[in-house]
Design a protein around this nucleic acid. Structure first.
Lengths: 120, 120
DNA sequence: TTAATATTCAACCATAAGGTTGAATATAGA
DNA sequence: TCTATATTCAACCTTATGGTTGAATATTAA
């Protein structure tokens, strides 16, 4: 989706949203590799993989180091922390809301009992 | 990205990759809401938000319940677990590789010392 | 220098997202 | 029954992805 106003988290999630890119990251988690090596397992063109790597770079998930004509890619886990933070906050919000609703239901229950007492 | 071969995780990550959709999820984490309510904070058309909600549904991140003419949306946190699992495995792979490399370096270091001893 | 290797760049195509407007549907309310 | 409200559907536009092929660049090796 990223237009001109996209932020880091957007880029990270876009980068992770493709199975080939996730496979590339898994591969890089075991150690650096060159573009050709990364492309080998896939049955698409080298150019296609080159583009995938660019999206991973944009997200900060890989870093590139040139050694002569070879480009060595390295896995950079930091942006994954941003995703985890978002998920953590999101579920935290949700759970606190559930607890709040629980309280509310409990209070309503008490009120109902009071009314029942008065009416009985 | 999802073509015909997209899986659940793909859909989840695509859904999370847009800030408006994340904002909708944050809103829904505090409690259910109707489409119009969800659309209110944004300066895009109701139709645009309707489409965003559809992508969230596709990912299983929200559930829809119709009450007369109103559609009530509810947050469904389950798919977020899949994202967390992936990240956990990815970083686990990476750390074990780092440790393996560490061992390797230590061994090489020992070997170097032996060589140094022999040569001295 | 010449030839092979490693990568990107450029141009192109198809599909999915993200948005718009206008019409269709369905339900609620006067 | 009319009319307003809540949502989706359909058609269209633009941009980003994901892919291709062919050419350009840079570096290594003969």
């Amino acid at each position: 989706m990223p237009g001109p106003s996209a932020n880091k988290l957007d880029y990270t999630l876009v980068a992770l949203a493709d199975p080939k890119r996730r496979a590339i990251l898994r591969r890089l988690a075991q150690g650096e590799a060159r573009v050709t090596e990364l492309a080998a397992p896939f049955d698409v063109s080298l150019n296609a993989i080159s583009k995938h790597i660019k999206l991973l770079e944009r997200a900060g998930l890989v870093q590139r180091r040139r050694t002569g004509r070879e480009h060595v890619l390295q896995f950079e886990p930091e942006p994954l922390g941003g995703v985890q933070d978002w998920i953590t906050k999101q579920t935290a919000f949700w759970q606190s809301s559930l607890e709040a609703m629980d309280d509310l239901l409990r209070r309503e229950d008490k009120a109902d009992k009071k009314i029942a007492e008065v009416q009985s």
